[in-house]
Design a protein around this nucleic acid. Structure first.
Lengths: 119, 119
DNA sequence: AAAAACAATAGACCATGGTTCACGGTTTGG
DNA sequence: CCAAACCGTGAACCATGGTCTATTGTTTTT
């Protein structure tokens, strides 16, 4: 599909998709037409962009996602790929821990800010 | 304590602390000297900055933390404060969910990138 | 008392992650 | 056929979250 359709269906803007592509997060192939240089974005980009979007919300950087894309696209040998993925998984787990701590802190603070029906 | 000591003991730079202060994340009071305008940073800023640092790693923005600081500093009435805190807690929980999903995805990808001893 | 360290303020600077704009070419709908 | 919508490219622009650099004045240290 062309970029406009991908944008429409992924909910991202054309510009964001192009930005991701420039940074190695999205892959496309030359389109079939000889009269233009429109690119073709394979269907699986839809699933992929859903992951990317979630991963961005999870706090992974563009650089992180470039590495992950390379690892999953077999741009590197299996050993390296697994190392990259393991490293990002660890990063995410560390972030999850920070979040748990922050939630704890905030819940305690909220509970100390007693309700309006307090004595 | 003065900003240098706070920086030293918190592990943040003076500049970062001043930046946080400008943005309402840190509070200080005028120092006791009449000959300068050095500010005094109460001891509890140490605990507070530890939270701030963790919360930043957890993905809360400066704006989020400004709101949280205001809520916890009783700059607003209890009802509003509890609402703010509840909203930030929800935000963090949503992010935690995204992280779980991303970890799932990456672990599956890692496991499909079979080990070097594969067939 | 003079140098070195520290403080406050203001403004410039930087990286990240997009977004917008200007341009020329292509396709598509009426 | 021709305007509207689409595409690719490149560069400018923007907000966020700091960081660095003067500049000026105040302790501390020697």
């Amino acid at each position: 599909m062309r970029i406009g359709e991908l944008a429409e269906r992924s909910g991202l803007s054309r510009d964001t998709i192009r930005f991701y592509e420039r940074n190695g997060l999205v892959r496309s192939v030359p389109g079939s037409s000889a009269t233009n240089n429109y690119r073709d974005y394979p269907e699986d980009n839809l699933v992929w962009l859903r992951f990317i979007t979630g991963a961005r919300e999870a706090g992974l950087s563009i650089a992180d996602l470039r590495d992950i894309t390379a690892a999953i696209s077999c741009d590197m040998d299996r050993t390296e790929a697994r190392q990259v993925l393991a490293a990002k998984i660890d990063e995410l787990k560390a972030r999850a821990d920070e979040i748990r701590r922050a939630i704890d802190f905030l819940e305690r603070a909220r509970d100390q800010t007693a309700g309006s029906a307090e004595g």
